[in-house]
């Protein structure tokens, strides 16, 4: 748990699940903590759980082991936090939801739709100048999909941030 003395900086991606009491001000407490302790969060999502009165928050961040230990301990100190879980990709399923508006013309539309099919993306809306696509996949695959769409022109992009759940039981 504790690094050896003079341990080297070794940054990697971490995903943390935080189960919190569902009442006003909880998000503000959590975000305030990140801001004042200088923790850089890549994404944060919030939503309901199977347990009434509890909300699940998933944060992702890139940090070295020492920082991540502080992040977890400081989060744990918040009274509203009931439980935190390590959801790092090695032992969790990790997904993100993405909406993207791509420029399309008569001539490019088919190619875009075909690409969407290939990537299991859904076509949600089509008009004369653009298509809205939806993709739910791992963040890396979404990156890859967006890269392939780039040549058609991405006009608007909205990603939810990372959601995750531990493997096994």
């Amino acid at each position: 748990m504790i690094e050896a003395k003079n341990g080297k900086k070794n940054e990697s991606e971490h995903i943390i699940g935080i189960l919190v009491d569902d009442h006003p001000g909880v998000m503000s407490k959590l975000c305030g903590l990140f801001a004042r302790r200088g923790f850089n969060i890549n994404s944060i999502i919030v939503g309901k759980t199977d347990k009434p009165g509890l909300t699940h928050i998933v944060i992702s961040l890139v940090a070295d082991n020492r920082t991540i230990e502080q992040v977890e301990k400081q989060i744990n100190k918040l009274i509203d936090v009931v439980k935190i879980t390590d959801l790092s990709p090695q032992h969790s399923v990790v997904r993100e939801h993405c909406l993207v508006r791509v420029s399309s013309t008569e001539s490019s539309r088919d190619a875009i739709v075909n690409l969407a099919k290939l990537k299991d993306a859904k076509v949600l809306n089509v008009n004369h100048t653009s298509i809205i696509l939806e993709l739910v996949d791992s963040p890396q695959k979404i990156d890859n999909f967006l890269e392939m769409l780039a040549k058609y022109g991405v006009k608007e992009l909205s990603r939810t941030g990372i959601n995750a759940m531990q493997n096994g039981n």
Partner: peptide
């Protein structure tokens, strides 16, 4: 008693 203090400023051999 506050685990967040252990290892926050100084590296610890035994927490």
């Amino acid at each position: 008693i506050d685990s967040a203090e252990i290892g926050k400023n100084v590296k610890i051999d035994l927490p």
